[in-house]
Design a protein around this nucleic acid. Structure first.
Lengths: 171, 171
DNA sequence: CAATATAGTTCTAAAATTGAACTGTCAAAT
DNA sequence: ATTTGACAGTTCAATTTTAGAACTATATTG
């Protein structure tokens, strides 16, 4: 499967993965949330090759996750800042950090603590139901096909002998 | 940077990315949450090459995200099911889906809807502060070094001439 | 006995990533 | 006036990963 195909899958998770689902992109986004804005900043913070960094930044701009804005003329220089679409990735970032905090810390404890400005306390992120406010767990959630679901495959038309070139990516 | 180095970074996000931060692994995990358990099931649902699938499943088992359990003798067959550590990835999955639902849907709408058993309603996942229950956004959160933080680099010891083989990955 | 199902392994070709050097503009230092 | 350094990339060969296809192995079904 090519990676641009991912974004056309009828699956929101696959589409998201098509945009941010690779290792360097996720690390670049971490830096964005830690207020890194410039090429050299990303490069020296991450040790990514300049080639890949340029490539990934270009893609994130194309996708509307980052905006490239000039911060000086002559020589023209730009910085990369999160758009609203990019800022909306925050829950994903926090979920990743929290899982690491829960399952991947060593004896020394957490590398970072998070303080919530509004209440002034150190906190963990909790994912809750928008309707009832209760914390979510996989077992309490049922999925239903939505309006954008792939139409159910007609079982009768599935010829066992046919060798499809690539199989579906969505359940 | 090698990928096993990621897991030793003093950054919970980098460590998490080291475990689940590649495209196929994320898609495999999506299938796990949709109740796929067997090799052929993953393969035909995803169209992943058998080689990579075997490799990724092995890694997820090694990391304690999946458990490999026999479901028949002769020929010995196993299925892959989520451990608690794996189930704890649920908020990450939901955050990915929700971002896609918000920013990547086409005219037809969402591919999947989610029903919360407890309250019976279709919902969106919302990330809130564990202490005050308010929804979180990047601007309201401040980070502090935790007990497992990398000790601050002594500025004086940074020799500009020294060419470090690989730069730090953590801010 | 041949075909099918399941869960892999092995191999080669193609694609992505690394590492290192190179380009170009401008400001500051010698 | 010339060299040095900061910044933001680009280019290219070598290595690593992934894709695609075929093959192995065990047991059941027709």
């Amino acid at each position: 499967m090519k990676w641009d195909e991912l974004e056309e899958e009828p699956c929101s998770m696959a589409r998201t993965i098509g945009v941010i689902g690779d290792r360097w992109t996720l690390l670049i986004l971490r830096e964005c949330f830690l207020r890194t804005r410039r090429f050299e900043g990303f490069q020296s913070a991450l040790g990514i090759t300049r080639h890949l960094l340029a490539e990934r930044l270009k893609k994130l701009v194309r996708q509307g996750v980052l905006r490239r804005i000039p911060y000086q003329e002559s020589p023209k220089r730009h910085e990369y800042i999160l758009t609203q679409k990019g800022l909306d990735l925050y829950p994903i970032m926090m979920a990743l950090v929290h899982w690491g905090d829960t399952h991947m810390v060593d004896e020394r404890g957490r590398p970072l603590l998070h303080e919530h400005r509004k209440c002034g306390k150190m906190f963990d992120p909790v994912m809750v139901c928008s309707e009832c406010g209760e914390p979510l767990s996989a077992k309490e959630v049922h999925v239903h096909p939505g309006p954008g679901a792939r139409p159910a495959l007609a079982k009768a038309s599935l010829d066992k002998k046919a060798k499809p070139k690539s199989r579906r990516v969505t359940a």
